[in-house]
Simulated scan of single mutants.
Amino acid sequence: MDLFSRSWAALRKAVAALQDEDFARPSGCKGWLVRDLVCHLIIDAQDVLITLVTPADTEPTRDAVTYWAVTRTPPTGEDPLDALTVRLAAAYEDPGLLTFHLDDVGSAAGRAAELADPALRVSTQDEVLTAGDYLDAYVLEWTLHHLDLTAHLPTAPQPPAEGLARTREMLEKIAGSAFPASFSDKDALLVGTGRRAPTEAEQAQLGELAARLPFVLG
């Protein structure tokens, strides 16, 4: 729960520090500019709020790791929902409106997470999780999107180290295999999720795991 709050606060702080011209730069999400990614974060924050007030009375069907659907097909940016996000982001016109909306809804999502009972069962996407597992899953979401936000902004602050470590841990559980110890947490996440291709040296270190990459989470 605490790591959710720290990861989310760091991501929102990074967005708040952006210059207007940064919103027109590419993000680490294929087909999305930074402004599109920030718009997606607003939608994510809304999802957190909705889920935390949607209790369930049945046993959990997912946890923080099994919450994620995994494919090997990287997004193209042409999915209808992805395209809708682009159109919605463009409708804001002024980047200041995007940051204001994210701060408004994002702060509410952060407060709701702090107030949530970790044992509470909640429902989302026809699945049931404890609130603790749901928020833990979002540590992965915030961390990967923080990397997406800063992909072409080299001076922007990076995700918290503990968020990177926890996200790597979850990705390795999803993969059923550990990434080489020589990989930094950031490199393991970027290569493991297909956000960049491995170098020849990394390919050799990955061994059999290389043939199973990427792990695209949705």
Rank of each mutant, 00 (worst) to 15 (best):
A137D: 00
R25C: 14
G207N: 08
L206P: 02
R212K: 15
E78M: 13
D63R: 09
V34C: 08
D2M: 12
A188V: 01
E208F: 10
L171M: 09
I174A: 06
V86H: 13
A178P: 00
Y134L: 04
T54S: 09
A181Q: 12
H101E: 15
L84D: 14
I174V: 14
A112P: 03
D133P: 01
R212P: 02
A113E: 04
A83W: 12
G163N: 08
G132F: 07
E208N: 08
R196S: 01
F100A: 15
D185W: 02
M1W: 14
A151S: 13
Q19W: 14
R6N: 14
W32I: 02
D126S: 07
A45G: 05
F4K: 02
A109T: 03
D117W: 09
E141S: 01
G218S: 14
H40I: 01
L140A: 07
F23I: 09
P157S: 11
S5R: 15
F4T: 02
A45L: 03
G132T: 03
E172S: 06
L98I: 00
M1I: 07
P80F: 11
A56P: 01
P74R: 15
H145P: 00
R12K: 15
A156Q: 13
P60C: 05
A131Y: 00
P154D: 11
R196I: 02
S27H: 03
P154I: 07
Q46I: 07
Q46L: 08
H146Y: 11
G194K: 10
A24W: 12
Q46E: 13
L49S: 03
S182K: 09
A197M: 05
G207P: 07
L102E: 02
L209P: 03
G207D: 08
A89E: 03
H40Q: 06
P118N: 10
A211F: 09
T54G: 01
D63C: 01
A90Y: 09
A178Q: 12
G110C: 06
T143Y: 11
A64Q: 11
R166C: 03
A119W: 09
D126E: 12
E59V: 06
P214L: 10
A69I: 06
P95I: 08
A175T: 07
T167H: 11
P198Q: 13
V65Q: 13
G106N: 11
T130F: 04
F23W: 15
V70P: 06
D2K: 14
Y134C: 01
W32Y: 02
L102Y: 05
F215H: 13
R72L: 07
F179L: 09
R111E: 15
L140Q: 04
T99Y: 05
D36W: 01
V34K: 10
K173Q: 15
G110D: 12
L164M: 13
E208M: 12
W8H: 15
A113Q: 05
L84H: 12
A24S: 14
T71V: 04
A10W: 14
D126F: 05
L98G: 00
